Amino acid sequence: MEKTARAAPLAFRQFILKLHSRCNLACDYCYLYTKADHGWRLRPRALSPALADRIVGRIAEHVAAHRLPSLAVLLHGGEPLLGGLSLVRQIAGALRDRVPAQVRLSMQTNGTLLTGPTLEVLSELSIGVSVSLDGDRVAHDRHRRGPSGRGSHADTTAALRRLGSEAFREIYRGLLCTIDLRNDPVATYEALLEFSPPRVDFLLPHRTWDAPPPGTGRYGDWLIRVFERWYGAPRRETGVRLFEEIIHVLLGGRSGIEGIGNDTAPFLVVETDGSISRSDILASVAEGAAATGLHVDGAPFDAALAGALPPPLNASCRACDLVRVCGGGLPAHRYRSGTGFDNPSVYCADLYRLIAHIRARLAADLAALRGTT
């Protein structure tokens, strides 16, 4: 597990482009604006068209050098739609014209700016859309409010009804929901189901050992209740990415998301000033924790490959019987002042409980299947 013995990844296959460094909401749990790193204050609000063009050039260079057949590009923020649709059009067109690979484009948004005309443009450009929704009105508006204090649930759900309509269903990718233990897990899941999402992502709040989450140890139970409701449904209602990835790895596959499994493909974040960052979730850890010291105008993306590896796992993680599945959790959740990332996840007990439960459920079902053949 020594750094010198760990080979750097061969290539980046996902890029996160920050179109705007600010947001029109003021969510009280946001890892970008309410945690340790305040570098966003020093960056331009919007990505400039000229810099966007140079970023696309770097992506094309990386893809050509590694002969990648495909890659994913996520348009992000802040709130990416604050950057304007002309910038979205420019980036989408340039990526598809200049990158010698299949480009899968998507956007993560709070949904409040998803008007009908905006959705028409995103549909025309084949940009998939995922929206943040934390459950019913009370659950959502507890955290996801505008600067004035007004909740965003009404605007977000109106946008989701448009996005889920026949006209735009093709670009609807799913919902992201940050867990709050005050919300009933099954009621939260069923509130999300009202919008017929193709997939749901349940997110653990971004916390560290310096500021552990309230109710540590209870998130696993919360997720188990959702898992049982999802897994036991008589028909498939939606995908739940966390559960699906855990099942996939338990059955011998590889994970496609950060924080599950040991071999997730690395990705890069490009900020509105052109600086190159690691996972921006590290903004919840310490000032500059996500920085690479690189800029698109001074270095190809290959220069960031050596620093793309997550920190080595803690000794207790390496000895765990489920480490192949949880992969130690998100690196940001392992952080503690003084020891850095040399710790298990602050959600270790929760992840273990959830994965062990899913493993037992699968084992029982597989045994039952063998008994019927």
Rank of each mutant, 00 (worst) to 15 (best):
A5G: 11
G340R: 04
I16A: 06
L114Y: 04
K35Q: 15
D53H: 13
W230N: 05
L113F: 00
V325F: 05
F243S: 06
A308Y: 09
R162I: 01
R235A: 13
P266H: 03
L354W: 03
V99W: 12
I171N: 01
A191M: 09
D365W: 10
G307D: 13
L369G: 12
E245H: 13
L32A: 08
V186L: 11
V138E: 15
G253S: 11
P312E: 13
A319T: 11
V226Q: 03
A315F: 10
T264D: 03
G146T: 09
D180W: 03
V99Y: 14
D273G: 08
F301W: 10
G232F: 10
R144T: 01
L305P: 07
V73W: 05
T339I: 11
D184E: 15
W40G: 00
A368T: 05
Y231H: 13
A72I: 07
S316F: 08
G174D: 07
R182P: 00
G252H: 10
S132K: 04
G259L: 10
G146C: 01
T156G: 02
A5E: 13
A60G: 07
C27I: 05
D263M: 00
P213T: 02
G239E: 11
H140R: 06
A299K: 12
S106W: 00
D321L: 02
R98I: 01
T272P: 09
S316Y: 05
A92P: 09
H333E: 14
T339W: 03
A364Y: 10
A101T: 02
L81E: 07
E258Y: 08
D155G: 05
A291L: 12
T178S: 12
T156D: 02
S123G: 14
L133T: 02
A315S: 14
Q102N: 07
L242Y: 09
E271L: 08
T373R: 10
R225C: 08
H153A: 05
D273I: 07
G327E: 10
H248C: 13
S255W: 05
G256H: 09
S86R: 15
V129A: 06
L322N: 02
H20Y: 13
H140Y: 06
S106N: 08
A286T: 04
G261E: 10
R241K: 13
I59V: 14
S70C: 02
G57I: 03
K3T: 14
C177L: 07
G232S: 11
R334D: 08
N314K: 06
S70F: 04
R334N: 10
E244H: 05
D280G: 10
V56C: 12
G39P: 03
E228W: 02
L133R: 03
L369C: 12
L330M: 10
H66W: 00
G164L: 08
D97E: 15
L366R: 05
R137N: 03
R254Q: 12
E61G: 00
R162M: 09
A291E: 15
N110H: 01
P100Q: 07
E244V: 00
